[in-house]
Design a protein around this nucleic acid. Structure first.
Length: 893
DNA sequence: CATGTGACTTAGAATGTCGCCG
DNA sequence: CGGCGACATTCTAAGTCACATG
């Protein structure tokens, strides 16, 4: 009973609960089972040992399925477990120890189970379970708690002890991949241990300082630049006694938070989206085939849906439909539903009966007319818009003009949650000024809210970098207006981010060493942590915070679940899960044997689908641990570090030879590797396959042309047949008569199309100029070349038909030349299409923008003498100004 | 501690524009 | 010299992570 209830709670709680429950259940049944305990198991295991794999667990039925798994791992885990226990007493875990047992064969499964249990309560009695566990025997709880405390202490001591012992764990071979950098540092390492905690080092101060200055100067307009710089300088000097200090905070992330980000701040707030423009009376959605009139507020929602009809991705998603229709109906209920042309009320109750196409057609037409607007007109509109937006584009931040990122309040619309977001399609309401909080300098003029309205609140929070904030209605998410990427603040924090990643270089060896050692820790929690860090480091996984049930079900490292990890002995792991943005992460990788073993243990029964692999680990625990190594070190730093590091090493392998495009390609190839590392993908649109096919078709077309050329050659010089062999003149592979026929038809149709289009265009123009349009007869006449083409094909297709040589004065040589030309064209197309194929689902942008230290790109540009423009668009150059200006070709990541 | 709040970075899709090829 | 695909920009969702709170 209680069991089922148990299943409810949060995901995390759930999995843990399930397990502990199972433990409980088992205990109740066979509490005394000491017999199962393997020799050497210490008391610390306490009550838990009792658990038996075979015991029915909470969700008995479900569990079953996992049995197979459980079995598979049995021997493994056993051996592994034994050491765990053993260790209990030892201070330092010794790898030998660990290994031995591993080799030992098969223990009774019970032991295994016991172990699990043990670990369970081991670290945990988890305060977390609480309420559900009320029924739990209090005594037991107390005991556990006590045990826990004890353990923590032990652990603490152990950790220290370990440090010292460190040196001998040679055995943990780092992956080849990462090895190189690690090695280099080794020497230093030792001493580092000591500083663990402290320091922000000053060392780089010199360089950094310089950078800081560069960065600081916005210097956008060259005209003003000089003057500005001066000002800056002084400002800098002022602040600059703090130089020291200032430098520190921007190097030391832990300080990042309590710091003042500005002293004066002026801005003009936000632009609100235009009011909803009701559709013209002639445009109505149909309900049950009948045009109906809606209250504007309801119509607005229908309009949003209708204008999306082309994005099947959303509109055909059942959740999207359901959520949309739910909110739509709610509004209908509120506004009295609809009326038909006679003013009779129509109650809208079925989504299926709604036809939004009239709305879509209207919207689509509007789009088209807008697009068709004469250029001058477009320009004018744009200018007007720019002018009205000008005041919002910039703010004054400590007296400096800085660009604002997103000064527009998000317009209402249907929420486009990604993946299987349970709320996708819900109506995102118009934001009222009353919801908006303004953050601004005390002395600044507060922007005026729209007529008759008030702001929710005015703040003067100097520790925040945002100018305007509101909360959205669907998820309660906070929306902020902040500065643009090219602003000083953003630039600085970007710089800081990469410096942090670089600092990790100094610690990475020790961290890797530690986690390799801790992979064998007898503390389940520690072992999980080590394993997680391993995954994060090696495979660039994200941290993986817990998520709520009203969000898409995606995971990162710490939230990986049973079903996301498949173990394939001897040491291959298959990851298959949805990560951020519901992007699939699929990788089949070899891992350290110990990691493999650990994952097996973490997956042991009674865990099953839906249960967390790292049930003893949270992102905050993980990050807390990481921060011991280096201030500000968190899981995400590893992604930055590994991405930049990868780029740097790839660059080292390159030699600055070849043409510019070749160098650019080399850069992009490296970039692609980083993107793959980070799993940055783009979903290939449905049209992609077709596009690919089209390219293939194009290639085939060219090959067919070649065939024809050859035939023409033959016509001119029949002896060639002998000289070159029949095969040379055969239809190319993959092309047959049928294909040829189709192709010919296409070519003819294309030709016709072209002529017709041209004709129509000319006619349009004539009409526009007030002249008479040409007659249909004219068109017919113009079709002549197409007709001729058709006729020619017909002749060719006749039995024994020849392909006549084309062009004036055809010679074999000329044809040969044409043939060659086609060869190159085919080659280019082929590489192009291959390129495209390999690139189709990799997105290079994200890694370039967020992960690869831009200074690396600058170095590449200088060293290989390729203009930076080839790598950074204008916006990126602005964003990375600090990098572009601060680095020479000797710089190292 | 667990959970919630808040602020900030990272992410792919949608949209806009621009350059290049036939 | 115009069409269209590639590239750039905008938009906002979805993460991370520190800190507050009970």
């Amino acid at each position: 009973m209680s069991d089922s209830e148990d299943d409810r709670p949060l995901v995390k709680a759930k999995s843990k609960d399930t397990i502990s429950k199972a433990v409980d259940a088992a205990m109740d049944k066979q509490a005394p089972t000491n017999g199962h305990v393997a020799p050497g198991i210490s008391m610390a295991m306490g009550p838990v040992e009792v658990m038996d794999v075979d015991q029915p667990t909470t969700n008995g039925s479900k569990r079953k399925s996992s049995m197979a798994n459980g079995k598979t791992y049995k021997d493994e885990s056993d051996s592994d477990d034994a050491p765990l226990t053993k260790k209990r007493k030892t201070k330092v875990l010794d790898s030998d120890d660990d290994d031995k047992p591993l080799k030992r064969v098969v223990k009774p499964p019970k032991v295994t189970a016991a172990q699990i249990g043990e670990s369970d309560n081991d670290d945990i009695p988890l305060g977390e379970k609480l309420q559900q566990e009320k029924e739990m025997i209090e005594k037991r709880a107390d005991k556990e708690a006590a045990a826990l405390r004890r353990k923590d202490k032990v652990e603490e001591g152990k950790r220290k002890a370990k440090r010292q012992v460190e040196s001998d764990d040679e055995d943990d071979v780092p992956l080849a991949k990462k090895k190189a950098p690690a090695k280099a540092k080794k020497v230093k390492k030792e001493s580092d241990d000591e500083d663990d905690v402290p320091l922000k080092k000053k060392a780089p101060a010199k360089k950094a300082t310089v950078k800081e200055e560069d960065t600081a100067a916005p210097a956008k307009k060259s005209g003003k630049a000089k003057v500005k710089k001066e000002e800056e300088q002084t400002a800098e000097d002022d602040a600059a006694e703090d130089e020291e200090e200032e430098y520190r905070w921007w190097e030391d992330p832990s300080k990042g938070d309590g710091t003042v980000k500005w002293t004066t701040l002026e801005h003009n707030g936000v632009i609100f989206p235009p009011e909803y423009q009701p559709l013209p009376k002639s445009v109505k959605m149909l309900y049950d085939g009948v045009p109906v009139t809606l209250h504007p507020e309801a119509e607005e929602i229908a309009h949003a849906f209708g204008s999306m009809l082309n994005s099947t991705h959303n509109v055909e998603n059942p959740t999207f439909q359901k959520n949309f229709f739910g909110d739509f109906k709610e509004m209908l209920d509120k506004t009295g539903h609809a009326t038909d042309k006679n003013g009779n009320k129509v109650k809208i109750s079925k989504f299926e009966k709604c036809d939004f196409r009239p709305i879509f057609n209207y919207v689509d037409a509007e789009r088209a007319t807008k697009k068709a607007l004469p250029n001058a007109e477009k320009k004018k509109l744009k200018a007007e818009k720019d002018e009205m937006e000008a005041p919002f584009m910039y703010c004054q931040w400590d007296g400096r003009k800085q660009k604002v990122g997103n000064f527009r309040v998000e317009p209402p619309g249907l929420f486009r949650g990604r993946g299987e977001h349970p709320k996708t399609g819900k109506w995102k309401k118009r934001v009222a000024p009353e919801q908006i909080t303004i953050n601004i300098g005390k002395d600044a003029m507060v922007p005026r809210p729209p007529g008759g309205h008030k702001w929710k609140e005015i703040k003067h929070d100097q520790e925040g970098t945002w100018l305007v904030m509101w909360q959205e209605n669907i998820n309660g998410a906070y929306k902020y207006v902040m500065l643009a990427a090219n602003s000083d603040v953003k630039g600085q924090s970007d710089f800081k981010k990469f410096e942090k990643a670089r600092e990790l270089k100094k610690h990475i060896d020790r961290i890797r060493k530690d986690y390799h050692k801790e992979l064998k820790s007898e503390q389940m929690a520690e072992r999980q942590r080590a394993t997680a860090v391993y995954l994060i480091d090696q495979f660039a996984l994200r941290a993986g915070n817990e998520k709520g049930e009203d969000e898409a079900d995606t995971v990162g490292c710490c939230s990986l679940k049973f079903e996301h990890v498949t173990l394939k002995p001897p040491e291959t792991v298959i990851f298959d899960f949805l990560g951020k943005d519901s992007i699939r992460f699929y990788q089949e990788v070899k891992v350290d044997p110990q990691v493999f073993k650990n994952l097996k243990i973490f997956k042991r029964a009674p865990k099953t689908d839906g249960d967390e692999i790292f049930d003893r680990l949270t992102t905050s625990g993980l990050n807390k641990h990481l921060s011991n190594y280096m201030t500000g070190l968190t899981a995400k730093v590893f992604r930055t570090y590994n991405a930049s590091w990868t780029m740097a090493s790839l660059m080292k392998e390159m030699t600055p030879t070849g043409t510019i495009p070749e160098k650019v390609k080399a850069y992009n190839d490296a970039n692609r590797k980083v993107a793959i590392l980070c799993n940055h993908k783009r979903t290939v649109g449905v049209g992609h396959a077709a596009q690919m096919e089209k390219m293939e078709g194009k290639i085939d077309g060219l090959r067919y042309q070649q065939y024809r050329l050859k035939q023409q050659m033959l016509e001119l010089d029949p002896k060639l047949k002998k000289k070159r062999g029949q095969a040379y003149f055969d239809l190319p592979e993959g092309i047959d008569d049928e294909w040829v026929k189709n192709h010919q038809e296409e070519l003819v149709a294309e030709a016709r199309d072209k002529i017709r289009k041209k004709f129509e265009k000319e006619n349009e123009k004539l009409v526009a100029d007030g002249e008479k349009e040409m007659k249909a007869k004219e068109l017919e006449d113009r079709m002549e070349p197409a007709d001729e083409l058709e006729a020619k094909f017909k002749r060719e297709n006749k039995k024994g038909g020849k392909i006549e040589a084309e062009g004036k004065g055809p010679t074999v040589d000329k044809l040969e030349a044409a043939l060659e030309k086609l060869d190159t064209r085919i080659a280019t197309l082929k590489t192009q299409s291959e390129d495209r194929e390999s690139n189709k689902e990799v997105a290079l942008g994200t890694s370039k923008i967020n992960y690869i230290d831009p200074r690396l790109t600058v170095v590449f540009s200088k060293k290989f003498d390729v203009p930076i423009e080839r790598f950074f668009s204008k916006t990126l150059r602005d964003k990375f100004e600090w990098a572009v200006k601060s680095v020479d070709e000797d710089w190292n990541f």
